[in-house]
Amino acid sequence: MSIDTGIAAFRRPFAWRELILQCWFIARVSMVPTFMLAIPFTVLTVFVLNILLLEIGAADMSGAGAALGAVSQIGPMVTVLVVSGAGATAVCADLGARVIREEIDAMRVLGIDPLQRLVLPRVIGSTAVALLLNSLVALVGLIGAFLFSVYVQHVTPGAFAAGLTLVTGASEVVVSIVKAGLFGLSAGLIACYRGLTVKGGPTGVGQAVNETVVFAFVALFFINVVVTAVGVKATA
């Protein structure tokens, strides 16, 4: 299905309207969970890091640690959780319901390719939203880390801001973007595959949604490990 979806990307006409609708749909179901996860993840990381830095008298390095954590790890990891837990499950349930109602079979009878009309817009939409969510998490995380460090743990604002780019540069941002794009692509493909292969009526839809979460988590964490290792080697 992944190969067929890639081939369908070069066929015309392209379902632009469906792409826009799916981008908005996935973003709508993912936005609130993103905010709810990004702030606690970042604050907890910065809290532990700042305690260590205060013990060794290096509190001015708080910004460097917060930037590295938010950009390279927290942003992609929160994207993993949100895209697979909210966006992918919603896509799988939508396609599974269409299969149960025999809409997919009706499309094939009419000569409409479901991969081109339904799967491709959802995969591209999932990838695009994952990239946007990764940037949003990094931004929210840095703002939350700044406020928590300055107003709760009394870190100097200027020192925090000056340390943001100390160990985090363009290479770390590129690796983070690549991670997010692969996360969105993989989650979209897994969700669409499980949605289109639903069997057993409404009960099968529920099972497919649960399997989508499990498969997406496993695939995305594996991708995170591989891309992180390759990125460290490439940028060392």
Rank of each mutant, 00 (worst) to 15 (best):
E172R: 12
A9G: 02
E211Y: 12
V119H: 08
V227Y: 12
L220P: 00
L131G: 09
G111F: 07
G6P: 02
C23G: 07
Q116A: 13
S171V: 11
G188T: 03
I56R: 12
A88Q: 08
P157L: 09
N134K: 06
L196Y: 04
L44M: 13
L44V: 13
A219R: 00
P121E: 06
V82D: 03
M61R: 10
V82F: 04
G206M: 09
V167R: 14
T5M: 13
L95R: 04
F35A: 10
A15V: 06
Q153E: 12
I74S: 01
V232N: 15
V225E: 11
A9C: 13
L131I: 06
P33V: 02
F217T: 05
A170L: 14
E102P: 00
T156V: 14
T165N: 10
E102M: 06
A138G: 12
A229L: 15
V78W: 09
L54Y: 08
V178Y: 02
S149Q: 10
E211L: 14
I26D: 06
A208N: 10
V109Q: 11
A58V: 01
F14S: 02
A145S: 11
I104G: 09
L49V: 15
P13T: 06
E211K: 15
V123D: 11
M77Q: 10
F217G: 00
L185H: 01
A187G: 03
A138I: 13
A229K: 12
P202N: 10
I39L: 09
F47P: 09
T79Y: 07
G163H: 04
A145Y: 06
L21N: 00
V80A: 05
G69T: 07
I124A: 10
T34N: 03
N134M: 14
V71Y: 03
